[in-house]
Write a protein that binds this DNA or RNA. Structure first.
Lengths: 190, 190, 190, 190
DNA sequence: GATGAATGAGTGTTCATTCAT
DNA sequence: CATGAATGAACACTCATTCAT
């Protein structure tokens, strides 16, 4: 028997992201994705149960990769501000260098498919970040408010800022990013 | 000559928003919108050039209404922090009370249709807010950074926080909102 | 507004029957039926809810037409044998002259679609025949057994006999039919 | 060389019949049959040339088994009526106890696949029955009409009567069966 | 102005079959 | 012998849009 071709699944994943970027969630049909990936539409149904599964899996994959990227160079012994700064920069860089991934996740998150995601599974990838915030709150360095509020103010704006489609008039780099993190930090620090 | 029936156009507008909320952008077809609005599919093409026009117009409408709502109780003689607080609360309240409108705009903004919007036309509705920020910068009250960064940090998180679909674990009200505005203000103030 | 084109529905009906005859139930797809009828596949969905509805309606139509045909020249004052003979001949002739209809009904009856038929609706068309049998039983002319058994022996064989596909070696006409009705009558008479 | 696995072929046979019963001819695909049988789709193509071959073989198998079953307890020295009664009961019992087989054959017989059957091969299994009828005609006990007519009246109704899908309102057993054979016999006897 | 009828092109998905192992 | 991977073609059905009234 033929063995499952890992490269095919990768091709489908990339084709999905690419096509959603180019023509949008609404117009990205299974057959177009298949053609982009260079496989038969039927092949997609070997790797994914249906279109929903394809999209949800693609989303979860991206989110988990982001979770890993955030922890690059993670050093718990540094001051909390420095740890968060590292994470914040990791996120900014990762998103900036994978804008097509996050164009996908944004479109996905604002579609009904998002309700089919196992939120706990995604949450797990961001556990360490949550713990840092927790520590900051305990040490009276960070405001004692709900995590969702904190992340909404420090991380969520990154998505906007690095999304050139939404944020046309501004090129972020060097000093500007420094400013941006400063703002984020001022927002949550006590 | 009979004139175009305003109530029909309203019905189509509301049906569009409602349907996008209920079944999502992807599944919202012209005929379904027509049925929801109680008119014939053909009728929609009297009021709108095509589906794109329908969606874009609906989006611009909502954005302009929001622009107006932000300025309710606007009093230029107050301190800048109070003016912004009023605007911030206006935005939070308007969004909270019109979640279905903003579910629509979020889905719209992350679709290729968003590129068909005349950005200047929308921008105009938010001119007064920009001017307040400008004044704050000049008076050394607010950080001197790009407007897009400022708004990304003060207003954009509201969308996340008031979007119950994205933000399940938290009910915003009273003290929590006070906290949230505090965070927003700390982010941008000098 | 354009008015519903009765000829289109007829064309779809005839195309359905014809195609099922030519290529069978299994291979008769909606698009093939549409092409045969000279309409768009989408048009079929204006007249029928879905494929099941198309097939079930077609079946019920045929059965009801048969019900009418059976009563041609019906004369209640004749002896029971003569009435039944008339009905039997009517059925034989109708089926013989509409073999493609009955090829369809046979294929339909042996498919899972048959369970979606409102049996009472069909039964109604055959009410008069049932009443004649009832009268025959009361007058001790016909055996007193379940109606389904009676009809299985007198009418059901007609389907086989007039189906040239099942019954290749025999040409029914004149004397042979006389024989056949004789057999049917002997079967049920007391 | 390994020999073809008889148990696999059996599994495929049974799976085919079972699936056609459960979901119908139209929906019974090769891969579903394979899954039901616990083998790979490819395996089916080892035992059968293609889908048509699978279905036709399954049909012929069932018909031949029926042919054997009819002759159980066959005793040529009995009177013709008794011999036929025995055969008739054999048929009724076999069909009643293997309704899923005959659901399959009915669906098969009314499909274009039926034209691919080697009719002579099937006919052979029923040779003895034909001969009894022949003898009955010669002895002036049975009406002298075409065999196809005779069998249409005595055996064909059994299929209807034992098909619970077609014949919902009636439970055949004991006395009722006695009645039914009486009717069949009256039909053909001189 | 307003409509339901009508459609070719497209949707997500499954098909019968073959391939490589 | 036996298999799961792979596929182009087909499936039932819906789409955005136009037509005739």
């Amino acid at each position: 028997m033929r063995i499952k071709d890992e490269t095919k699944q990768d091709a489908i994943f990339e084709a999905t992201v690419k096509l959603v970027n180019e023509i949008g969630f609404v117009s990205s049909s299974v057959s177009k994705i298949a053609k982009e990936a260079g496989v038969s539409p039927a092949t997609i149904y070997i790797y994914y149960k249906n279109k929903e599964d394809l999209l949800v899996s693609t989303y979860v994959n991206i989110k988990q990769e982001l979770g890993c990227a955030l922890l690059e160079g993670f050093n718990e012994s540094l001051p909390i501000r420095d740890i968060l700064k590292k994470i914040w920069y990791n996120m900014f860089n990762y998103i900036s260098n994978h804008t097509h991934y996050f164009n996908f996740t944004e479109q996905f998150a604002n579609s009904p498919y998002s309700q089919m995601v196992d939120r706990d599974e995604v949450q797990k990838s961001f556990e360490p970040v949550i713990q840092i915030l927790q520590k900051g709150i305990e040490q009276k360095i960070i405001k004692d408010v709900n995590f969702e509020i904190l992340t909404a103010f420090i991380f969520y704006p990154i998505l906007t800022l690095s999304n050139s489609r939404l944020c046309k008039n501004i090129e972020l780099s060097g000093e500007t990013i420094e400013d941006a993190f400063g703002i984020a930090w001022d927002a949550i620090r006590l």
